[in-house]
Every structure is written in C-alpha cells, then in structure tokens.
Amino acid sequence: MKKFIDLDFLFVNDLITFLNQLKEKGVLPEEYDSNQAAETVYSTLAFEFLLYVYEEEHTEEQLLQGIKNKVDFIFT
C-alpha cells in the first residue's frame, strides 16, 4: 500500500513541476497556484475513479468525460 501512496505523491509532484514549467513559459499566469491545482486534479481523478469502480452503471465514457469536465473547469 505504501508504494501506491508513494506513486500518488510522485504524480502530484510531477504535475506541480509541469504546471510550474507552464508558468515559466507564460502559458499560466505567474500567480497560478500549481500546488492547489495539482492536488485538485489528483482529487478529481480519485473521485471519478471511485465513481467508476463503485457505481455499476457508471461507464468508462462517463469516467473520462467527468475527468475532462472537471480538469477543464480547474484550468479556466
């Protein structure tokens, strides 16, 4: 279980690094909070995955669309 948690933190850290690179390139505003955004994206993925796993009628298409909608919202 510890290895899975470590992978989760690695993903969040990599996403923070990526978002900071986008800030350096001027794609995202300088004041954009990369840490909050990365944690929110991770939370979105976890939430949508749990819906997909525990709701029998929840389709893969709904999983992907839910992620897309929420990530679009985070970055607009």
Rank of each mutant, 00 (worst) to 15 (best):
P29V: 08
Q21D: 03
V27H: 14
L19R: 05
E30D: 15
Q36I: 06
E39V: 01
S43I: 05
N35R: 14
Y32N: 07
G26E: 11
L45A: 07
G26M: 13
L15D: 04
D8E: 15
N13K: 13
L15P: 06
T17N: 00
Y42M: 02
F9L: 06
E31I: 10
I16L: 03
T17L: 00
T17E: 09
E24H: 09
A38V: 03
S34M: 01
K23P: 09
L7C: 12
N35K: 14
N20S: 09
K25G: 10
D6H: 11
D14W: 04
L15M: 11
D8Y: 04
Q21T: 09
D33K: 10
N20I: 01
V12Y: 08
V12N: 00
E31F: 05
D8S: 07
S43G: 13
I5V: 12
N35Q: 12
Q36S: 05
S34C: 06
N13R: 13
L45F: 13
D8G: 09
E31H: 05
T17D: 11
F9N: 11
V27R: 15
Y42A: 10
L22C: 10
L10H: 14
V12A: 12
A38C: 06
L22D: 04
V41S: 08
Q36D: 11
F11M: 05
N20E: 12
L28A: 08
G26D: 11
N13S: 14
S43E: 02
E39L: 13
F11K: 03
F18Y: 04
Q21R: 06
Q36A: 02
S34H: 01
S34G: 09
Y42E: 04
A37I: 07
F9Y: 12
Q36Y: 10
L19E: 08
A37P: 00
V41L: 01
K23W: 03
E31L: 01
K25R: 14
T17R: 02
D33S: 08
L28H: 10
L10W: 10
D6L: 05
E31C: 07
F11H: 10
N35S: 12
L10K: 15
E39Q: 13
L45D: 00
E24D: 14
L15I: 02
A37Q: 06
F9H: 09
N13F: 11
N35Y: 10
F9R: 13
G26K: 08
K25E: 01
P29F: 14
T44D: 08
D33E: 08
D6V: 11
A37R: 02
L28M: 12
T40P: 09
F9W: 12
F9I: 02
A37C: 09
L10S: 14
V12P: 04
I5C: 00
F11Y: 15
Q36R: 15
L7K: 11
V12H: 00
T40G: 11
N35G: 05
L28T: 05
L28Q: 09
E24C: 10
T17S: 05
Y32W: 02
N35H: 13
N35P: 00
Y32M: 03
E30F: 08
D33A: 00
E31Y: 02
I5W: 06
A37S: 04
